[in-house]
Amino acid sequence: MEPAISFFSGFRAADLWFMAEAAWRTLLISGVSIVIGSLLGILFGWMLHEGRLLASLTLAPLLDVFRSVPLIIQLVLFYNFAPIAGLSLDPFASGAVVLTLYCASLVANVARGGIAAVGQPMRRAARSLGMTYWQDMRHVVLPIGGRAVFPSWVGVALGVMKDSALVSVLGYVELLKASQILITRTQEPFMILTLAGAFYFALSYPISRYSARLEARWAQ
């Protein structure tokens, strides 16, 4: 009798490389989204702060949508909408666009809070010393307000990094998707998942600890 064909094969060294590549893809898509999303978010936050009525009627509800609809739905929607609008985007591009907007909508709130954290008397003092609006923004609001909300920004950035795992629904092989593929083949769920989880943890934990320590030091 022939031996039964096995569909499964053990975990090999090459699989580690496969996971490392996937981890790099996780870092890539979250890095791109966090950088562009934060810049965009700061712009939105500034518009929310300065635009008052107009912005709170138009921009604020729009940004709110990104926070009220699950990211996974946003991803699927955009990925399927892009071809309708005549764009041909690969999973990376689609995922990066959605993650960037998602990140921007979260950072906008943080940035607005940061600008509002700088008291009106301080702003007036800066202007009455002869600073222009932008000098006041650059030399007064940025250092003081930025410091006040830096920990929240770190929280948002780490959140986006973790949420980047959802881009796997579009077929982008990031770390969790790679783990899933390997688990299907090797049938060793525990080890592979622990490896993937340890990667996220090793990235997120030290950064969040560092930011908590900075916050405590600045609070003094």
Partner: peptide, 22 residues
């Protein structure tokens, strides 16, 4: 607390999904 806060929710779901299969 630290694992819940520092890993993706999807990872946690997968863990209860096929991780427990181990």
């Amino acid at each position: 607390v630290e694992i819940a806060r520092n890993t993706p929710a999807l990872f946690q779901l997968f863990f209860f999904g096929f991780g427990m299969g181990a």
